[in-house]
Design a protein around this nucleic acid. Structure first.
Length: 213
DNA sequence: AGCCAGGGTCTAA
DNA sequence: TTAGACCATGGC
């Protein structure tokens, strides 16, 4: 059976090098919320309607209705706008100082993010990695499907996280890249279809049978 | 036409 | 504590 580093190396060889998300922590936070159960193309459309350099001050200057209207293409506009406002207020508690937030321990930051309504497991982890450079493995729908197709049978997302975090050195870039690589692979090969098109894991990938979610 | 998209909350048992 | 309904919009 493949181990975590085998998987990473295979993906990196096939799809690397990974692309950095954004070096603007606030942009990452907003996009992480917008992309919930939504395609990236919709997120890009919304981001283009925002100023090039997105700031908490700009978002705060909008009325609820204006923000909802701007993000409508991403769906769930009422909830997502409320969540964006909540995380903006949360960010203001730290004077918009990324370094202050980075100084939290990984679990502490995770709990603080999860306490914001509208931020769940995945969004919390995405923000931890891409905005605040914490070494956290991100589990999303693609990751679950991908691992299932490779023949793994994890009970919980926590088991998946442990599987990778055990073998990865605590460098946020590894987690960042790995997540991006799995996504690239997933877009090509691990959609919700029973058929797996010829992929780099050929003989290890068992996904010619229907996928149980 | 109908399914799917890098989810999260709430509720019922 | 876990499964399922529900949420909105756009793309194919």
């Amino acid at each position: 059976m493949l181990n975590a580093l085998d998987i990473y190396n295979s993906l990196n060889y096939a799809y690397g090098p990974a692309v950095w998300w954004s070096d603007n922590a606030y942009t990452v936070m907003v996009e992480a919320i917008l992309v919930q159960n939504t395609s990236w193309s919709s997120v890009e459309k919304v981001m283009q309607a925002f100023p090039k350099e997105l700031t908490p001050m700009y978002i705060s200057s909008l009325s609820d209705v204006e923000l909802e209207s701007l993000i409508r293409p991403c769906g769930f506009a009422k909830r997502k706008s409320a969540t964006i406002i909540r995380i903006t207020n949360w960010f203001r508690q730290f004077e918009y100082d990324v370094e202050k937030i980075k100084s939290f321990e990984t679990d502490e930051l995770r709990n603080r993010l999860l306490s914001i309504k509208g931020i769940g497991n995945e969004t919390s982890d995405v923000i931890s990695v891409y905005a605040f450079h914490k070494p956290v493995f991100i589990v999303d729908a693609y990751t679950r499907r991908f691992l299932m197709k490779l023949g793994f049978n994890f009970d919980t997302d926590e088991d998946i996280k442990r599987f990778f975090e055990k073998d990865f050195r605590k460098d946020h870039r590894l987690f960042d890249w790995n997540h991006w690589l799995i996504l690239q692979h997933g877009i090509k090969h691990c959609k919700k279809t029973p058929i797996c098109h010829d992929c780099i894991f050929k003989n290890k990938c068992t996904s010619v049978v229907p996928i149980m979610e």
